[in-house]
């Protein structure tokens, strides 16, 4: 959800000489119910600075925004890219190494010197189990069903890009044909995750591309067990979300401090019940209760970060060709 706490934050900053750390992120991160407010309060208490979140659409738009702004960018830290974009982001030359060592509890080993992971999850189609009684168990079943879905544009949204690579990982050379049959289900392609999830909740579609962890939000925050994620037999694509420091920042120490904070328990314990993802370091208190009810994919799929850019380009061409018809 796009809120603009930025302006309010700037107005309330009474200590005029306090340094400001500007963090570009995606819009749902800064929403009232997202991690933004809690992270801001926790970090500002630690740094004695002013943390300013700037919401820039969805994750993939963050990267194009940076390319547009180039070295002139006002961002000190960018939070919200994922491993599908890290190679392309690094190629811009705008990022600096982080030097953070964390006790990551990620399902993969982490050795990226430029980006700090902050959470991870599996993409999945989420549906209302009071309306959809027989959810699809694979892409093929979804394509054969009469269920409508909302997806996100892979050019602007990291879930959209995740789906693109998910389909590519499952279907390989046949991905174009798979899209051609899946497209009958697609009501619309939104710019970002927030739009799509909002449309799903308003009843504009039967299913929405989101995460296996999304039902936990409804379960824990709303005590509503009506949302489920459909388990696909082909496996689920994994997303690891990352943050990185902009090389041209005028507050490098503050940026380093923030990235170290990202790996700390204070930050990580906020993530599960605000960003509704698995934390990159399991908090001391463990995961919240509702998380044990979530589906566990039989198989995790991911394209290695180094290859993601090339695979993305090929998959994007196929998707555009299939979807433009």
């Amino acid at each position: 959800m796009k809120t603009f706490p930025v302006i309010a934050g700037a107005l309330m900053a009474t200590a005029a000489q306090a340094e400001t750390l500007t963090v570009y992120t995606y819009d749902s991160f800064t929403s009232e119910w997202g991690p933004g407010p809690a992270v801001e309060a926790a970090f500002e208490a630690e740094c004695g600075c002013d943390l300013e979140f700037v919401a820039v659409g969805d994750g993939a738009e963050l990267l194009s925004r940076l390319k547009l702004e180039g070295a002139r960018t006002k961002a000190d830290v960018v939070l919200g890219l994922d491993t599908n974009l890290t190679a392309a982001a690094e190629a811009t030359g705008l990022f600096a190494p982080h030097g953070v060592t964390g006790d990551w509890t990620l399902p993969v080993d982490w050795a990226d010197a430029t980006f700090v992971p902050y959470d991870w999850g599996y993409f999945a189609f989420v549906y209302d189990n009071t309306k959809v009684s027989n959810p699809p168990k694979s892409f093929a079943e979804l394509a054969d069903s009469d269920l409508s879905i909302v997806i996100q544009d892979p050019r602007s949204s990291t879930p959209g890009l995740g789906l693109l690579l998910w389909v590519k990982s499952v279907y390989g050379d046949k991905a174009g044909e798979a899209w051609a049959s899946l497209n009958d289900q697609v009501v619309t392609v939104t710019k970002g995750w927030s739009e799509a999830y909002g449309m799903f909740l308003e009843g504009e579609a039967d299913m929405v591309l989101s995460y296996t962890t999304s039902p936990a939000y409804h379960l824990i925050a709303e005590e509503d067990a009506s949302k489920s994620a459909a388990a696909f037999s082909e496996g689920h694509y994994m997303q690891i979300e990352v943050a990185g420091k902009i090389a041209s920042t005028d507050v490098p120490e503050l940026a380093d401090q923030f990235l170290a904070f990202v790996g700390s328990d204070a930050f990580q314990s906020i993530i599960p019940t605000t960003n509704w993802m698995y934390p990159a370091v399991t908090p001391a208190a463990g995961l919240p209760d509702g998380f044990s009810t979530l589906i566990q994919p039989e198989k995790a799929l991911i394209v290695p970060a180094a290859k993601a850019d090339a695979v993305r380009d090929a998959a994007l061409t196929e998707w555009l060709a299939a979807s433009a018809k």
């Binding site: 959800m1 796009k2 819009d27 970002g192 927030s194 739009e195 909002g198 449309m199 308003e202």
Partner: peptide, 9 residues
């Protein structure tokens, strides 16, 4: 348009 995007209709 941004409010529509956030589905704050």
């Amino acid at each position: 348009y941004r409010l529509m995007g956030a589905y704050r209709m």
